[in-house]
Amino acid sequence: MSEFFTRMGDGAGVYMTAEEIREDILKGVKDAADRGKVPELTQEEMDYLYQIITMPGNIVGVERGREVVSTSDSGSCKITYHANIAMERSMAVLVSEKVLGADSVDIGNMDYSYKAVKQIVHNETPVMELAQLNAVMPVLYGSMPNLGLYTKPDGPVENWSELLPLAKISEARAAQEEAVEHAVRDIVFVAGEMYEAGADGINLDTCGASGDADFLAGLLATEKIKEKYPDLGVEFGAAGEFVLGMHGKLEYDGTKIAGLYPHKQVKLAEKAGANIFGAVVNTNTNMSFPWNIARTVTFLKACTAVATIPVHVNVGMGVGGIPMSEIPPIDVVTRADKALIEIGKADGL
């Protein structure tokens, strides 16, 4: 019986038979459909996904003409802070543009949180200004709402993660609501400074990392940014496939935020005025790549079907079918890309 090389969700190589791959594809599709209450992939789509997974060649690519565009989170930091190459960030923008072939990139601070950036924004704006003078492609500024940073002892509000185990539910909710106000104020302030520095857009990255209040902060900040700076693009990136209900009762425009999957998250991002939505589907490290990518494509297809704004699916380590691995293997990375674009109808990565 012939076997095909693929990977597990942690990146480890594994050989699977055709039957095992097809079985995992079906299970992945059904898991997403069940959790998200979204349609399953058709048999034809699952057959094509099988073809993509088992294609010969170390890497694969999309059909000619199906190429999409890319945005990033902490894009220029990958060279500077992450790879530890001593390089000023506006130079990293040019490397991304002229050497790496990026369609856009975002500049971010090491901390990558709006709360931290607010205090040093006067040193961040010159980096953006220099980048804008020298770069041709769009350059965004990116950071996370990161609501947890607003809790004591580092921040001004009570820590809801400490209050909840004490059954102080109302106090935990009040703390989160207060943190939202602080976060929105900081995000809009930084966005204004970056607008005055020439930024093409603001990337609100990993919205929902601290739960539904974090997601709400991103939505309210998007609303205010578009009110004050209508020409400034906003990319609203989610933190996960499912918004955690750390608060549980928060709503945006009459919709309860906790528990939303990507196809409903995107509608709130649209209402808030976002120009691009960054969809996230989490990778399960215990399951195979066929299971993970089938599940991801099922969620994504439902999301792009209802979206009126472009959807850039997150394909970093541990999301979008990509293994949770520090150096994601290109064999499955390129197969994930092809599946997400050709079956999931992603507008970008």
């Binding site: 999309v62 002229k98 369609d103 492609m137 890309d337």
Partner: peptide, 12 residues
């Protein structure tokens, strides 16, 4: 880089 080569337009 893998994304740019496999699936993206490659910017400028």
């Amino acid at each position: 880089m893998a994304h740019a080569v496999s699936s993206c337009m490659s910017g400028i």
